[in-house]
Nucleic acid binder design. Structure first.
Lengths: 338, 338
DNA sequence: TTGTACGCGTTATCAC
DNA sequence: GTGATAACGCGTACAA
């Protein structure tokens, strides 16, 4: 029975299905694209059966070449170890899916070299669109790395350009509000804990917001590669001791949740969590901190909504291939202090 | 000067570059593929210049169609919110990169429907290989969802098949060792806290390991959608109270780090962390818990190495297109209790 | 060293 | 309704 030439090497093609069904490949193509009104019921049924039997799946590469689009959107995250990144991807993904687009995640791994590699691949014209949370924070440089004509949305970074639509959060104002709240609570001193600030617009904005309230705020910069270093801990304890001697109330403002977590044990074991002269706040993405410190107030971003918003805009752009000029170039999804 | 026909619509092609350089498209193709020994220095330089000027990037879709491979590997994670998933991706990614392959991450979002959607896309012959941490734990079903001929490695799940190579960890034995350790420490009772166990081989194996030491171990199953429910907390406190009344020592064994974290506040506020009759352990991926509980012993998996191992095997398979039969079908990357 | 011409698997425009 | 057939952009014998 199996007297068909058995091509074990390659997957079956539309042409082969056509031959087996006794129709032309054009008809198969129509079937695959749901143009059922352009063929008889019998033909459709026959094709259906052959496809089931053979397990045929159309070659997306060939389709892309022919149609010039893939329905694929590249999403580039700065680092998927951050909950923010994975969450905005999930937001983007869910919206894209509703628009018959597929989100594909690239991880820059906090490494500019890797980001560059990712962009090179993405430039090769298999993706219809791009949503990126860039590491490179410099407009001309990033511009040169993204192929002209690729629909692009920038997420979570302000590159000070109108060339791309940007979905950001209100880092500066929410930091300011938060700082102001603690100042009203009589916290006279503020210590900011962050990874290296320079060049990262997100962190710069946050620090600026805080310093607009606490101009003298101290900054402790943590070396990313050694976040649990003992000397950082010592620095913090020294500050606390000095402030206590001076009878001052001190706020510790962590620009990232993970930093708070890394200091949490120190505070816990030094019995500082219940010290009313000390308070902690942070940009907090997960529910871990609010579990540990139920009484505390944290800054909650909304990465899922940011991703969803970016995806919404991109989907529309891809749908109506004309770009509307009246669209807002910078969209802000506010974070909340609560 | 700009009297070339300006095709604003489409990206420039190899043909256009050829025309501008005054050579044939075959020569451009050779240039792009580094076959420099097959052309004069002058030609190469000329082409180089044109490519720079035009910003030409080759169309990967067309190349794929022609060469029948993309150098792309799909990596499907069960849920990128889990550190385990992102970390094994990073391991896989780093190894694939060394082999001139590109890892692309798909997130199943803990949703079998989404996993199915992902697999459908991956089947469409644009990927050379697949590394998957499946949600579906049933061999025949998963088999039917993965295109025959797609090089596949299964990660972190035991589907009890030799059809695919599998990279797993020693869930059962390490759970057993851990339980045995606590039994030696005179912990007579054990409470296991997990998300729904049934059907997830990972959790089943862990529970089996524990029960081989504590046959009577209680199981508290947390509803994934409401992990912070108060009644779970109450259940735990009741157990503790009962055990204390009976003067028994109790071990709380969390099958996932996040579960420990969600209960941590309860333990903290009830002053149970320093109670020598109570101990906690967990499968722990991040450094958060060891920060909070420096004295505790946790089970550390090695997702990065698991991903790297899977990628290593896949890279070899793709390189030597013949599959060796002598390769081990099930590879175990042991977790450590420390 | 370089060019010609065909193939990759699909879509889409004509015909019939 | 259905079938030829020319694109789509690149790689690669085979010629020259």
């Amino acid at each position: 029975m199996a007297n068909e030439k058995s091509k074990t090497e390659h997957a079956i093609t539309i042409k082969e299905v056509a031959r087996l069904a006794g129709v032309s490949s054009a008809t198969i193509s129509r079937y695959l694209n749901g143009k059922m009104n352009r063929m008889s019921k019998e033909t459709a049924d026959k094709i259906e059966k052959i496809i089931q039997d053979t397990g045929f799946v159309a070659n997306a590469t060939a389709r892309q070449l022919s149609t010039r689009n893939s329905q694929l959107v590249a999403v580039v995250a700065a680092d998927i170890d951050d909950y923010f990144s994975t969450e905005f991807f999930k937001g983007a993904s869910s919206v894209l899916e509703q628009n018959n687009l597929t989100a594909i995640l690239f991880d820059s791994n906090s490494d500019k070299q890797r980001e560059l590699t990712n962009l090179k691949i993405i430039n090769h014209q298999v993706f219809d669109g791009l949503i990126i949370q860039p590491l490179i924070n410099n407009y001309p440089e990033l511009r040169s790395l993204i192929r002209k004509g690729l629909r692009t949305i920038i997420l979570d970074r302000d590159l000070h350009t109108n060339d791309w639509i940007t979905v950001e959060t209100n880092n500066q104002t929410v930091s300011q509000e938060t700082a102001a709240y603690f100042l009203r609570q009589q916290f006279t001193d503020c210590v900011v804990v962050s990874e290296a600030v320079a060049g990262i617009s997100t962190r710069e904005d946050r620090l600026a917001g805080i310093r607009s309230v606490y101009p003298e705020a101290q900054l402790i910069e943590i070396d990313n590669s050694r976040p649990f270093m003992k000397d950082n801990e010592k620095k913090v304890l020294d500050i606390i001791q000095a402030d206590q001697a001076a009878k001052r109330k001190t706020l510790f403002f962590f620009l990232k949740e993970r930093l708070l977590l890394s200091f949490f044990p120190t505070f816990l074991h030094q019995h500082l969590l219940t010290d009313s002269n000390i308070s902690m706040t942070a940009f907090s993405d997960t529910a871990i901190v609010e579990g540990l410190l139920p009484a505390s107030k944290m800054i909650k971003q909304n990465p899922f909504l940011m991703g969803a918003t970016a995806a919404e805009i991109l989907s529309n752009q891809l749908k109506n291939s004309a770009t509307k000029n009246d669209i807002k170039k910078h969209i802000v999804i506010p974070a909340e202090f609560r």
